[in-house]
Amino acid sequence: MTAAVIVFPGSNCDRDAAVAIQRLTGEKPVMVWHRDSEIPPCDLIVIPGGFSYGDYLRCGAIAATSPVMAAVRRRAEAGTPVLGICNGFQILVECGLLPGALLRNASMRYVCKDVHIRVETTATPATLGARRGDVLRIPVAHGDGNYFADEATLKLLEDENRVVFRYCDRDGAVTARANPNGSIGNIAGICNAERNVVGMMPHPERMFEPELGGTDGAVILRSALGLAA
């Protein structure tokens, strides 16, 4: 298993992702700079969190135009699994690999805390080792995580079972109170129609070993890295 982590100016979870990948697989991922127009052969592409290009214009908008994202698009279309985390999710919606948009949090506040998310489908590279209905405790850290899509898109996502995670309480109930940012339908993560591109706001790489306060993120990374039993 070879993984690639894309690095933009302003990425700040790229090394967290790299450490998690190395600890879980025993192999260092390839770090790919935003100006590179080719990505070396790999089995997983991770687009990490951070503030690419200072969140100028809109979160992820400038990164979406970078040469490396053209390469990510080609690889995604060829079937390589892509996992976008936080700013990585924002970049994936800005470049159109995932539908919808991520708006300013409804509270207008940056939210940095552990949340619970419920696994809604196991038919994605990031959840194939989990069970539907599993409740995971994973941190979020974002100011713009309020998922929005028009009614037709939302219906398509629901009909095609493409909502991957929803914010929920510790018992798995999807409630307004458990929603940290105002996301429509409590959506915390989605996938594309082909199901190989997954975007999520919570940070599994910040919760994958006991020293970090929990291990619930490991199932997502292990799944994406081909380590799921």
Partner: peptide, 9 residues
């Protein structure tokens, strides 16, 4: 269309 506005929102 390409950059300045995100027409979803």
């Amino acid at each position: 269309e390409k950059l300045l506005a995100n027409q979803v929102i």
